[in-house]
């Protein structure tokens, strides 16, 4: 059997195309140059180390909130956060806008990291109550 990638692993990988382990493997050949690397992403996003620290921590103190006024979903059709959220059911669409279901969200921050809006539309907030167990 080949190594299978967990759902979370896959979505994390999508957020980290130049993760060192992938760089070493031949499946993603080296860049011809120029495209941004891991330490070089959108300044408004959370630094990747923090994100890694949060990922998979179901007891995270954070949860995501979508700030509709900055979000592209309705004006020019963005769907990145809902596509890449690794937790089934943590995000849903309401009248075309992405919404976070706080009880399911683990606070992993991927949605914030991938949001391409000029003013990041995802806010990571301290949650008031403990999150529900992560569904498998």
């Amino acid at each position: 059997m080949s190594a299978t990638v967990s759902r979370r692993g896959f979505f994390t990988a999508l957020g980290h195309p130049f993760h060192p382990t992938q760089r070493r493997s031949q499946s993603v050949p080296a860049l011809k140059g120029g495209a941004p690397g891991p330490g070089d992403r959108c300044e408004s996003g959370a630094p990747s180390q923090d994100r890694d620290g949060l990922a998979g921590n179901s007891a995270s103190a954070l949860t995501a909130i979508i700030q509709g006024r900055f979000c592209f979903a309705l004006t020019s059709f963005c769907s990145v956060c809902t596509e890449r959220c690794p937790v089934p059911g943590a995000m849903k669409k309401e009248r075309g806008l992405p919404m976070v279901v706080p009880d399911v969200c683990t606070g992993c921050g991927i949605c914030q990291e991938v949001c391409p809006a000029p003013r990041n539309a995802v806010l990571m907030m301290t949650r008031r109550t403990a999150p529900a167990p992560v569904p498998v």
Binding site: L14, G15, H16, P17, V28, A35, P36, D40, R41, C42, E43, G45, C78, V80, E113, V114, C115, P116, A117, P118
Partner: peptide
């Protein structure tokens, strides 16, 4: 960077 992060590969 923003576009790259949103659609990395």
């Amino acid at each position: 960077p923003q576009l790259h992060a949103a659609m990395p590969h």
